[in-house]
Simulated scan of single mutants.
Amino acid sequence: MKAHPMFGDTLIAALIAAFDLLLFVARVVEPASNPRPHPWFVTLPLIVGMVAPVVFRRKYPLAAAYLALAVGVVHSLLEIGIGSLVTGCIALYTLVAYVNRRAALLYLAVNVVVAVVQMPLQRPNDWVIGVILFALSMAFSWALGEFNGARRAYNAEVERRLRLLETERDQQARIAVAEERARIARELHDVVAHAVSVMVVQADGAAYAVRGQPDLAERAVKTISSTGREALTELRRLLGVLRSEENDGGERTPQPGTQSLSDLAGRVRAVGLPVQLDIVGDVDDLSTGVGLGIYRIVQEALTNSLKHAGPGSSAVVRVERTGDRIELSIVDNGRRASGALVGVSGGNGLIGMRERALVFGGTLEAGPRPVGGWQVRATLPIGNS
């Protein structure tokens, strides 16, 4: 009946009509009944006209209510049955539950006026009982309408909030996906930029040394090979995140962290940029996220030094833990052209380093040193990492 409300209202109308028809048949069978039955061609149309508005009360509540009131006046005057009282109560309930209190109050006032005028004329001896019955019926219909209207409003509010929660959940899912894609993009940039920079430098060195210093060229080629393999391993790990859950059981490699800084410094030294690594304090117990952020910042800074510092340069990396924060300093003494400085300051590498620092509520500054060279300084709060 909830899925097809008109079908349910039709059943209600049929029950009311059936009761009035039973009263009509009983009066026909008992000729001495009081009141005497009216002709069928008067009674049957009034019964049908009395219950017909009930069928359409949800679709046209106001029209159905006043149509029932108009037919109900004639129906009650002829004393055909209880249809006029029942349909009046149903109409009032419908207006309270589905329209508004103002429309229901106006309809109730019209009913009261009709009842006050009609009952003393029709039943001068027991009109008080009729008025009491009418008042109780209308009061019950109003209360029932208020209850059902409040329940419908509550259900509508619950459904609205559920839709809102579903919308927020979908938005949060899209935000999470975007953040994960941004994180993967930063990881890919760091891996590719570092590996390609090392390989280009080594390839240039091998090209110059291939005839005069074959041993040096061979070492450069081996460095290119090992760097490429390491980059491929990290790329496979990152791209594995984008695979379906069916491939979750595949081979995985651990994320680099502060424990990998020595290996990173060694690889950069092998490429040709002397790196001094100073670690002050215990940084082995940092969380995986903080450790990865430190590693990527140092990796990107050394990659920029490798590309732009020039020959004969060196770099100093200092990682210091002081209380609840990590101080990072990556400094080189190279000479850079203005164009190179602009490229570094506005490139994706520096943006990625700043984003990594901001993720943990930290800060990052990068720029030329007054005495020459380039410096990157970052502060990362670590809390209880």
Rank of each mutant, 00 (worst) to 15 (best):
T233C: 04
P311E: 05
L292T: 11
R318W: 00
V200P: 05
A207L: 12
V201W: 10
T303N: 01
S329R: 12
G250C: 13
Q213G: 13
L188F: 13
R267F: 11
T303D: 03
V198R: 09
P256A: 13
G312N: 04
P274H: 08
G293P: 00
E300A: 13
V196C: 02
G272Q: 09
H194Q: 07
I326K: 05
T322K: 09
G228D: 11
S225L: 13
V280S: 07
A270F: 06
A209Q: 13
A193P: 00
D190C: 14
L306G: 02
G293I: 14
L242N: 02
Q299C: 10
P254G: 06
G266V: 14
V298Q: 08
A207R: 14
Q276R: 15
V283F: 01
E234P: 02
G249H: 14
G272R: 07
R229I: 06
A220N: 09
K307S: 01
E245C: 11
G291I: 09
D204R: 07
V316Y: 08
Y208K: 15
I297F: 02
T322Q: 07
V280P: 03
S313P: 04
L188H: 00
E327H: 08
R318E: 12
A203I: 08
L302R: 02
M199P: 04
S313A: 15
E218K: 10
N247D: 11
Q255W: 12
L273A: 02
V241H: 08
P274Q: 07
R219E: 06
A231C: 06
A270I: 06
L261E: 03
L238I: 14
G257Y: 00
T227S: 15
E234V: 01
R219P: 07
Q276S: 13
A206M: 15
S226F: 10
V196T: 14
S197N: 09
V268E: 06
Y295T: 04
A301P: 05
V196S: 06
Q213E: 15
R296K: 04
D278Q: 07
D278N: 11
R186H: 10
N247L: 08
G272S: 03
V192L: 14
D263Y: 13
E320H: 09
A265P: 06
T223M: 11
S313I: 03
R296P: 01
S314T: 10
L264V: 11
R186W: 02
G293Y: 05
S197C: 14
S260F: 00
E320F: 01
V290K: 08
G249D: 09
R236V: 13
V268C: 10
A231T: 03
R229V: 11
I297K: 00
T253Y: 11
Q255I: 06
N304T: 10
L261G: 05
P256W: 05
R325D: 08
S197V: 10
G291T: 01
T227K: 01
V201T: 12
G310R: 01
P311I: 01
E245S: 09
E234L: 03
A209N: 13
Q213Y: 09
V271L: 03
V210M: 13
A209M: 11
A315L: 02
E246C: 08
V316S: 12
D263G: 15
G323E: 12
Y295Q: 04
Y295D: 07
L277T: 09
A309W: 03
Q299L: 12
G228M: 06
S313W: 06
L235N: 02
A207M: 14
T303H: 01
